[in-house]
Nucleic acid binder design. Sequence first.
DNA 1: CATGTACGTTACCGATCGGTCACATTGTTG
DNA 2: CAACAATGTGACCGATCGGTAACGTACATG
Lengths: 200, 200
Amino acid sequence: MPTAESGRTAETCKPRVRDRIFETACALFYEQGINNVGVDAIAAAAGTNKMSFYRSFASKDELVAEYLRERERTHWKWWDDVIAPCEDDPRRQVEALFEGVVSRCRGAGSWGCAAANAAAEIRDDSHPALAVIHGHKAEIRRRFRALARAMKARDPEVLGDALTLLYEGASSSKLTFACKEGPYINVAKTVRSLLDAQLA
Amino acid sequence: MPTAESGRTAETCKPRVRDRIFETACALFYEQGINNVGVDAIAAAAGTNKMSFYRSFASKDELVAEYLRERERTHWKWWDDVIAPCEDDPRRQVEALFEGVVSRCRGAGSWGCAAANAAAEIRDDSHPALAVIHGHKAEIRRRFRALARAMKARDPEVLGDALTLLYEGASSSKLTFACKEGPYINVAKTVRSLLDAQLA
DNA sequence: CATGTACGTTACCGATCGGTCACATTGTTG
DNA sequence: CAACAATGTGACCGATCGGTAACGTACATG
């Protein structure tokens, strides 16, 4: 057995076939949609074949769930990085988050929220990805409500939900608006005036 | 040739097979997602077969585009009905629209915005439904901006975009939040305080 | 009765789907 | 060298996909 490999110290240097498949699948799922990407296409794009795929993943559905878990990890890392410079200033944290969303949406490779897109594609209640989607969205709402509470908003639940909806709307507007300057471009300004109104 | 039928006075009483197929397809597309509903399933659910389908529609893609056009017609009819009682009071119209959205989302048969869901499923730039989606969303934005202008908001573009995002977010939150009381429940209150802040 | 329209039925096409089989190859380790 | 784990290869499965061809039938109109 390899010395520097015990199942958990991996993901270091070696380009394991499983990792190549997974990264390729994540990119394809996000750009083209889950139902528009077959297992064959993933394996081919990763420079391997379908059999190697099924040696690494139990099923496509499980891969999809894992894909969304990875997106969620990345999302929260991004979130924490954005709010870190404004520690102990929840209002600045919220503003920074929405400024971050705007510049994220501006990017060329942005196709909206992976979880929301997946929710539109997956309608089978038994799909393992559904729990990931719902958990992710519930956590977003929870964090915005916590930020509203930290800001001492007069109605933290309402303000938290408002921020959640604006956050959802901004990313989802990426796919639905053809123009390059969708309604998300003004969301930071909106949030500021909303905070002005809701904070005493 | 039938007397009471000249191509435009139709859609009256006779249960034409084309109409049955179309209504069935609209319901299935909305409930289960476009890519999860095959032509065979549509025909069978409409009590007919695939051949009758292709005698009425050029292709599935064209049916999908027609489905979204129908959803848009219904949406604007709903919209106009909601704002009609508040004529000459744009602020009340906006408030009525969001109260309407909340009660619409509360309904059991609500699966979010059909256009937004379709946008997540359709990633092929040449799909005939894309123009319908983009046109619908652009019109929503245009109307909210016009309402903001009619309200004499100090920055109609920003306020109009804010309303657009909240409108988008509210309906899209239907599929992404598992709980029965998603963040949309507070959107009417948010809109009121946003209007208070933005109107002089 | 003859004609034409609307519709039902069956079988079929090539392509793709998710998933599995048996077998050959590679590279590392002991 | 022997052994083993990881990977590549190609054929194959049943099911479903969007779409078509050929034919039969019901019915209303002239």
